[in-house]
């Protein structure tokens, strides 16, 4: 049974960066990894494919072709299997429905989510409709993580996501802090994690190297493997691959959340 994880968090907080770097780090450790991008922006796998954008499941569905596994699974950095669900452009259609449909098809078509050690579902920013929890509801995810910084808004979003997870009776396996250089960030996020019944799994310091590599279409693991930040991702990757116990999160009320950010 592969480890199947989903990473949730406010839009723009760094889920895709984290997911792709963790995927690359795990691959370096010898694990077989599959990453599934569930965002219509289709940007989860770019840095694992040297900047290449791959055909998405929804694009192929639209063209009405007979879809086979090799049409949607692409091999990236050191063998990472990459899949992008795709979806509509902004302002039209229903991205959530796209995720539901594509996940269904993936289940039927692909062994990439079974014959592997780690599957990472990189989901869109906020869980805004039923479709966005499709990977969890359809039984494809057994561990969830929430990514946040120490600022109020991303924490509010993280807390909101926990409400969704709690409603679905889904366990949270850890909180990851992606630093924005806010004051007392590590303490704040650590405290938040504890109070919702989880733990701070990793503190990722802000490092411009991540952005520089991304711009060129690379993960730091590939482009700057000996950098300090690469080391942080490797450590996080190892933490995730350990046996991890999850717990259904207990979301905080807004008052407590504001108090926390004033620490």
């Amino acid at each position: 049974m592969p480890k199947q994880i989903a990473i949730y968090g406010k839009g723009g907080i760094g889920k895709s960066s984290t997911a792709s770097n963790v995927a690359a780090a795990c691959t370096d450790e010898g694990y077989r990894v599959t990453i599934i991008g569930c965002d219509p922006k289709s940007d989860s796998s770019i840095t694992l494919l040297q900047g290449r954008r791959i055909p998405t499941i929804m694009d192929l569905m639209r063209e009405d072709v007979d879809i086979k596994e090799e049409d949607i699974v692409f091999i990236g950095y050191k063998g990472v299997k990459c899949v992008e669900i795709g979806g509509p452009e902004p302002g039209i259609g229903c991205a959530g429905r796209g995720i539901i449909v594509a996940i269904s098809m993936l289940k039927k078509l692909s062994s990439a989510i079974e014959d592997t050690d780690l599957v990472i579902y990189d989901v869109p920013g906020d869980i805004v409709c039923g479709g966005f929890v499709a990977p969890v509801k359809k039984g494809l995810v057994n561990e969830t993580y929430v990514l946040t910084s120490g600022e109020y808004m991303p924490l509010y979003a993280a807390n909101n996501i926990c409400k969704g997870l709690a409603r679905l009776d889904v366990a949270l396996n850890g909180v990851i802090c992606n630093s924005r250089d806010a004051q007392n960030e590590e303490i704040i996020v650590s405290e938040f994690a504890k109070e919702i019944g989880s733990q701070l799994l990793a503190f990722i310091p802000k490092d411009v190297l991540v952005q520089t590599c991304e711009r060129d279409g690379f993960s730091v693991i590939e482009k700057a493997p000996d950098s300090e930040i690469a080391g942080v991702y490797r450590k996080l990757a190892r933490s995730i691959m350990e046996k991890r116990v999850g717990k259904i999160p207990e979301p905080l009320d807004d008052k407590r959340l504001r108090e926390l950010t004033r620490i």
């Binding site: 055909p55 192929l60 063209e63 009405d64 072709v65 007979d66 879809i67 086979k68 049409d71």
Partner: peptide, 9 residues
């Protein structure tokens, strides 16, 4: 390369 089905009319 995905095999294109005949487009349904």
């Amino acid at each position: 390369m995905p095999v294109k089905k005949e487009k349904e009319p």
